[in-house]
Design a protein around this nucleic acid. Sequence first.
DNA 1: GTTTTAAGCGTACAAAATACGTTTTTTTAA
DNA 2: TTAAAAAAACGTATTTTGTACGCTTAAAAC
Lengths: 241, 241
Amino acid sequence: MTPSSASIAHASNNDFYADNEKLYVATDCIVFGFDGEDLKLLIFKRRVEPDSGIWSLIGSFVQLDENVDDAARRVLKEITGLEQIFLEQSKTYGKADRDPGYRCLSVAHYALIRLEDYDRELVESHGAFWYTLKELPTLALDHDQMVADALDKLRRKARQQPIGFELLPEKFTIPQLQKLYEAIYQRDLDPRNFRKKVLSLKVLVKLDEKDKSGSKRGAFLYRFDADKYEELLESGYNFEI
Amino acid sequence: MTPSSASIAHASNNDFYADNEKLYVATDCIVFGFDGEDLKLLIFKRRVEPDSGIWSLIGSFVQLDENVDDAARRVLKEITGLEQIFLEQSKTYGKADRDPGYRCLSVAHYALIRLEDYDRELVESHGAFWYTLKELPTLALDHDQMVADALDKLRRKARQQPIGFELLPEKFTIPQLQKLYEAIYQRDLDPRNFRKKVLSLKVLVKLDEKDKSGSKRGAFLYRFDADKYEELLESGYNFEI
DNA sequence: GTTTTAAGCGTACAAAATACGTTTTTTTAA
DNA sequence: TTAAAAAAACGTATTTTGTACGCTTAAAAC
């Protein structure tokens, strides 16, 4: 074992792993979607032995030459076919006994995707399915905890950044946006106050079209103005919703 | 390589590391202190080759049979002599090239300690020193980024949880507490409004003693009531400061 | 005893969150 | 054809919270 320049980062550099031991690093993804009513999670059921039939999050080992966040993106692309989606590190799970098979640590990430965008065939071919939070079965290992933690992160994030648009189609109505925030926060919101609040952020562009799927009268469609958002963000604007 | 029950957690289980390759896992600690005026950070300067003279955060490799957070606690005890201090995971740094020597990923943690509590001899013997944020030298690897991220976490955390008490002595005055929050938020606060706000949280117990070090008149000492805090927390109280 | 300084208390104003009434548009059914 | 129903869209009142700032008080220093 040759000490490199990197070893200065550590108080003691005599605790390298023995050559016959290994510590694995994986990443697991908590993938959120929204169907207009409920928040959904993408999980998969293993179809071959061992552990056939057990539900778990999608994930993979991190390759030796791969950035950890790239590993998460790779998994997402592999299962959903999607690239360039919202992905953020959630938390690292590092209990020595978290995986009964061998020492493996997992860097969890959460992702937000549009339910109409993903590759249905690809998802099915991996044995993956969308579940609402309420119907979610018990997951393998510490994955239930990962989901709980990611939900908490999502809620905090949604409160301070207009993140909801990542889960909706390009065009959406204000009542649809409200339903999403109600699903995230798990509580009802007043439609009049929600509209007032969200329009006051000045990042929505009203379109000339209406969506009639939700009501008799129909509601105007809006789109999120990313440029306007960046602009306001730089001027120290507060985006609490 | 024997696939264990754990491999169900992953979409593909054919990407184990080759037997001659290794991915190391370390933890680095961002240790905050408060001297009454400024936030301080504990960093250490390597005194032996290679890389003698380079400043970095304190850290260590994670042992194979050790929980990641226990590794962070071990480091803290090793350098400061302290146990049972506030420690929270910050973020994991996993870029493949973050350490030029070998593939090493670091799970950063931040800690809050009372400056009068730590073991001075032990700290010195490890070549560690307290630096104010403004005077902080450039650190090794991605440690500057770790500090910036941890500071951001600390600020957010302090806003929603009465965390400041971890950095102050058991007994403290309200002006002292204000100085701390001014150091954390990097902005001046109005003493009258700060007092009003902090007393409205109902988690401070006024003592019969005064501290005269800060002013001629002296200020009453308070202590944090952890039981009261837990109680109010459970009843859904909001602790924004 | 007068001055100085920060602690401590109080009040006025502004901004944000919340509650809730009213009108409008369109579909469905009488 | 008209009335009822339902949700969208707009508006206003009230409450809560945040911010600005004046005044008094206690104790040391001169």
